[in-house]
Amino acid sequence: TFELKGKVGKVVKIAEDHYLVESEGDKWIAYSDEKLSLGDRVMVVDVDGLKLKVKRIP
């Protein structure tokens, strides 16, 4: 299986209740415990079905 946990991506869209993150050339629906901005670099900390939980990284 394709393992996304630990992968790095970038926030490419902000929606009302989720983010769109591009990682490894694909776009994924993501959510975070912190507020993210367009262009933020993020790391995948968990995968919930087809949704990614991400956190901001420097």
Rank of each mutant, 00 (worst) to 15 (best):
T1G: 15
T1S: 15
T1K: 15
T1A: 15
T1M: 15
T1W: 15
T1C: 15
F2P: 15
E3N: 02
E3T: 01
L4W: 05
L4K: 14
K5I: 15
K5N: 15
K5H: 14
G6I: 01
G6C: 05
K7Q: 05
K7D: 03
K7S: 13
K7M: 11
V8Y: 04
G9C: 15
K10W: 12
V11R: 00
V11E: 00
V11W: 01
V12Q: 05
V12G: 04
K13P: 00
K13Y: 12
K13A: 09
I14R: 08
I14W: 10
E16N: 09
E16M: 11
E16V: 08
E16S: 12
E16G: 11
E16Q: 10
D17H: 10
D17R: 13
Y19M: 10
Y19V: 10
Y19E: 01
Y19F: 07
L20G: 06
L20A: 06
L20M: 08
V21K: 01
V21R: 01
V21N: 01
V21S: 01
E22P: 00
E22I: 09
E22L: 11
S23I: 15
E24I: 04
E24W: 03
E24P: 03
E24L: 04
E24K: 02
G25S: 05
G25E: 05
G25Q: 05
G25N: 05
D26Q: 14
K27L: 11
K27N: 08
K27P: 04
K27T: 11
W28K: 01
W28Q: 02
W28N: 02
W28R: 03
W28F: 12
W28P: 00
W28C: 02
I29Q: 08
I29R: 14
I29W: 13
A30I: 02
A30S: 14
A30P: 00
A30E: 00
Y31K: 09
Y31I: 08
Y31Q: 10
S32G: 09
S32K: 12
D33I: 13
D33S: 13
D33M: 13
E34F: 05
E34W: 05
E34S: 07
K35A: 08
K35I: 07
K35G: 07
L36K: 00
L36G: 00
S37N: 06
S37E: 10
S37R: 09
S37F: 12
S37Y: 13
S37T: 09
L38C: 12
L38N: 09
L38P: 09
L38Y: 08
G39N: 13
G39E: 10
G39D: 13
G39F: 14
G39L: 13
G39K: 07
D40V: 13
D40H: 09
D40A: 12
D40N: 11
D40K: 02
R41N: 09
R41Y: 12
R41A: 12
V42K: 00
V42P: 00
V42L: 02
V42I: 14
V42D: 00
M43C: 14
M43Y: 06
M43P: 00
V44I: 14
V44C: 09
V45R: 02
V45G: 03
D46Y: 03
D46R: 02
D46T: 03
D46H: 03
V47C: 09
V47M: 08
D48K: 06
D48A: 06
D48T: 12
G49N: 09
G49W: 08
G49R: 08
L50C: 12
L50P: 05
K51D: 04
K51L: 14
K51I: 13
K51C: 13
K51Y: 13
L52K: 01
L52Y: 02
L52P: 04
L52T: 02
K53L: 10
K53I: 04
V54E: 00
V54G: 01
V54F: 02
K55R: 13
K55L: 14
R56Y: 07
R56L: 10
R56E: 03
R56T: 05
R56D: 02
R56S: 06
R56K: 06
I57A: 08
I57V: 07
I57P: 04
P58W: 10
P58G: 08
P58Q: 10
P58I: 12
P58Y: 13
